[in-house]
Design a protein around this nucleic acid. Sequence first.
DNA 1: TTGATACTGAACACTCTGTTCGTTAACAAA
DNA 2: TTTGTTAACGAACAGAGTGTTCAGTATCAA
Lengths: 184, 184
Amino acid sequence: MSGDRRVRRTRRAVQDALVALILEKGYSAVTVTDIINRADIGRSTFYSHFADKQDVLFSNIEELGFLHPDHAVRDGELFAFSLPMFEHVREQRSLVRALLGRRGGGLAEAHGERLLAAVVRDELVARAGGPAPSLDLMVICVVGAFLGLVRAWVDGEISATPAELDAAFRAATVPGVRAALDRL
Amino acid sequence: MSGDRRVRRTRRAVQDALVALILEKGYSAVTVTDIINRADIGRSTFYSHFADKQDVLFSNIEELGFLHPDHAVRDGELFAFSLPMFEHVREQRSLVRALLGRRGGGLAEAHGERLLAAVVRDELVARAGGPAPSLDLMVICVVGAFLGLVRAWVDGEISATPAELDAAFRAATVPGVRAALDRL
DNA sequence: TTGATACTGAACACTCTGTTCGTTAACAAA
DNA sequence: TTTGTTAACGAACAGAGTGTTCAGTATCAA
């Protein structure tokens, strides 16, 4: 724990307040005044820590550690990140829901998408022995499928275990990816 | 063309103004005042046609006809909607970009997702001979892949022809879907 | 031509934003 | 414990945006 205890307390109170309010009203309906009241801090205090509402949202993303360096690549398996990540999502469900769910306002999606795309792309390029334009399109499809599952899950549109989600993700993507890699 | 010419003129001016402004500044940065100025109409006129900014956005969606009933199913082929829809997107690129692109604010995504999910689901259920829980997860993956391509494309992150996008979409999804259907 | 109706434009109360500043409280380090 | 530093408070502020009202004007279809 670094720094002043007051700072930690304040920042955490603000971040938690925003997440709670997003889940109640949706991101766009939440005002800075709401956050201040919920976190029970002074207005000037808020602005001494965060530039605006968005800033609070992004600070939450960074502390989520969306892609923890848990790349325990189970030998040659494709997309080894899948199951650990679904499990990580389950542990942080309400936070992920506030960030990536429908009520989240879509601002965090770009972050998550970019991070995940980098992981997927690295893996495909490594296996293909080099970059290729068709790989980039494949990355988009794979990332879209994965985040689609995450979003539907945290929003409660579907109920499943991380293992079931992992199986569905693999069933949908791996055959196509394998065929494409063989074709190159 | 039904109704009063003045009404038509005003509504169109407002809708066009919003799309243009979204492409310039992003949805959340556009104010009703901006729209009024760009469309060159009085404030009270705006509120006599639309409840708010969102209302204008949704009115655009309805007129897009996202899923035109162009279901010219090329005999047994899977996901026959793909190529025609990519072509339709190309024709309405700036509108689709304003609605589904990153600057769009994510409000329209839910609409598109639901519409497309219904189409995909119908097709899979028909081929599987009935509904199944694993099919629902598959639908989410397929829709995620398709909309991922659409978004990346209209946002200019990738450059490709509709035919190339169609090929990439098929390459990514069809093998997995076929395998899953056989397994049932 | 006429009756209906859409548009105008200004004014209004309201909410939210982001900043400022003097005062008070909490902190880490000596 | 003392001391210098820094955070938090809270009230006040200007500015921007929202959604409504209303009397007056222009445009419409028939």
